[in-house]
Design a protein around this nucleic acid. Structure first.
Lengths: 395, 395
DNA sequence: TTATTTTTGCTTGATCATCGCCATAAGTGC
DNA sequence: GCACTTATGGCGATGATCAAGCAAAAATAA
């Protein structure tokens, strides 16, 4: 048993304590004794250890009930920082967060990922460095770096696997490249996976089984099963964009197959269809703009897309029985229009037992879900190893 | 940390050791020292504890490499027994197994579950007692009882939830009823879940993500994600029988909806169709019999059913990315006929990344998957709490 | 100001798991 | 039969933890 607790590393035996304090609530010694079952003296020793490492801090306010007021301790979210990046096909979002996933600095830029890993990561390195200077943080405060990439990633090695829209990235050792430059552990994952992680952790921690559906240029989803990210055998889980839908078996998808969901209901498919109909729309954002401005064709199209996606999700609800479905991505910005279509189909097609407590909602974190998820991935890896990922990448 | 290890109960600190010995990773003291990092003396103490409780036994053969031969230890599968039952709609299979899920005694009977819980469980109690007498085991050797039921079960409480084919069972406290009579922990779960568990554990332990598809009177599946059973938010995960299939939106299902998979490809649906065509077939078994005897209509029907189910599974493969799909249930006894249809559709419709290492195979345990899974559920609960289920039912 | 209450820091002796060391057991090779 | 090698068991030392107690600190109530 000893080895298990010592595997925690620097935090040593105090890991269990930290776990309790990390929920953000201030706890007094008396409460902690109650919660852990430790002796007062032992608890004192452990608190000292955590205090000296700055992992926790005493709060200002003293709660008195007639005698000497008790000192309450809280988790020190500012003890370390996490570097997080959500790299999309054309735009990237980079952030520095504290250990409570609070965003301390943030940037969103147009960065084409198709120029290859070295150029993109060099830009990322410089952006991180600039932001660190901005916020006045040093390198030794970094507890880790989390990266989301728009394609399949082998999480254990942090390398992209045959990514369709990232030429030159196949097998590129992202963790090694960045790890050398910052001297911190680097974790990489698929963008939908980290979005699911972010939404689950920051907005819906009570949901045990969550599906995050990203509707943007393409369509994909991140899966949380029993509070763990489900990545699948090849890390390819959640690739629902190429599931065949019944209604349109004549449309050719970019993958070569017929009637893929993505070829019908994605942002790219919708903008293409609007353009063909004479309405100008270059990408997902234009579609959303048109919907918001009340364009009839766009509204009809997005409602129909919602029903198509709902068709696929209805099957998934029966199979997976999630407690929450969160919808995010560019197209989700159109709001209720797409959710209405989704709900309509899911509630009529799926089993009552599976739908009676099912929540279908738009992402609360919106376009920040990715970076926050990347931060969560890193923080959990450092503070509670094994919760999110079971294999270490780099140290 | 202390409290964590003590929660293990009677095995105390030696739990980790037992896990290693159980998997056969190490056998001699030297190897165990290497693997655990414990001191030789500490290891010796722990081994003594395990030996005195009969959890492990020294083997006869002594491995020498020039000096005094090392004593090899093996997990004593006979230390305790598990009582297991797989109750189906009309027939039941009951077994006593050792801790290695080896079947020591077994019975298969026609037992209609629709007569209510008291009659069925009373029969089960007597069967267990008879079998115990037969094998010469006593009650205090029972480490637990595992039950599989044909309907949704809230695993944490062990109670059926609105089971469609089990009148009178809704909310019945199965664990309490049986626990009182045998003085052992009772775990209950859906029949497909335990089949998935059995097949995963006994036949395919290397598969991290497994889907067990049961094709019998109805159609359902059990889901293993990251070596853990995925039960879903309402314990309703895996209910793929009522997913709508494109090809037959005109057929009414017993659930009231149109075009359910179960209404097209289940044993009940096939026997009904054969009967309507003038070929006598009362149930799934008759269908299998006809297929085996080479009846053209039956063969065509089962091939088509394979394709329909494959259609649904193709979507699930994209979504879930399993490493193995195991097919079981009465209809699966027909062998390659149904697998051919499945493979045909899945390999053509699902993504190459997801299918390239995907195995689609018939159940190795066949009609024993259920009881063995029930035994696994109990054994894992006692020996490695938290591996399969995270909530305790009864003690 | 003083008494009371409650928290906190510190000390002590006991307990327990673990560790390192040494003696002994049980083989192999000459 | 003897030296050598390797495995095993036992003993005292170590360190973490615990329960208990006492004194100091910091508030409230009289």
């Amino acid at each position: 048993m000893r080895m298990l607790s010592e595997a925690n590393g620097s935090i040593a035996g105090a890991g269990a304590l930290l776990k309790i304090l990390r929920d953000g609530q201030a706890r007094t010694r008396a409460e902690l004794v109650q919660l852990t079952g430790l002796a007062r003296s032992t608890l004192g020793q452990r608190l000292d250890a955590l205090l000296s490492q700055q992992w926790i801090v005493p709060t200002e306010e003293a709660i008195s009930s007639g005698g000497r007021p008790a000192v309450a301790f809280t988790f020190n979210r500012g003890a370390r920082i996490a570097l997080a990046a959500d790299l999309g096909a054309t735009h990237a979002r980079v952030a520095i967060t504290d250990l409570g996933t609070e965003v301390l600095a943030e940037r969103a830029d147009e960065v084409p990922v198709d120029r290859g890993p070295v150029e993109t990561l060099t830009w990322l390195q410089h952006t991180f460095e600039e932001m660190l200077a901005e916020t006045g943080h040093t390198r030794d405060q970094i507890c880790g770096i989390g990266i989301g990439l728009p394609g399949p990633v082998e999480h254990s090695s942090g390398r992209p696997v045959n990514p369709p829209i990232m030429p030159g990235w196949d097998g590129f050792p992202v963790p090694e490249w960045l790890g050398e430059r910052f001297g911190a552990p680097v974790l990489v994952d698929n963008d939908v996976n980290i979005m699911a992680l972010g939404e689950h952790w920051a907005a819906r921690p009570e949901a045990d089984h969550l599906i995050f559906v990203k509707i943007g240029t393409g369509i994909g989803c991140g899966i949380i099963s029993d509070r763990h990210l489900h990545r699948g055998a090849q890390g390819a889980a959640g690739d629902i964009g190429h599931i065949q839908v019944a209604s349109a078996t004549d449309i050719v998808c970019r993958c070569g197959n017929l009637g893929c969901l993505e070829a019908v209901a994605s942002g790219a498919a919708m903008s293409a269809r609007l353009s063909a109909a004479g309405v100008e729309a270059a990408d997902s954002r234009d579609v959303v703009r048109l919907v918001r401005s009340g364009n009839t064709q766009a509204v009809q199209l997005i409602r129909q897309a919602g029903r198509e996606i709902g068709d696929v999700l209805a099957s998934i609800v029966n199979f997976f029985n999630p407690s929450v479905i969160v919808v995010g991505g560019d197209i989700a910005e159109a709001g209720e229009q797409i959710l209405a279509g989704l709900r309509e189909v899911i509630y009529s097609r799926s089993l009552p037992l599976a739908t009676q407590h099912l929540t279908i909602t738009a992402s609360e974190l919106s376009d920040r879900a990715g970076v926050i998820g990347a931060a969560v991935m890193v923080i959990e890896h450092v503070l509670a190893p094994g919760t999110v990922d079971r294999s270490v990448t780099r140290d």
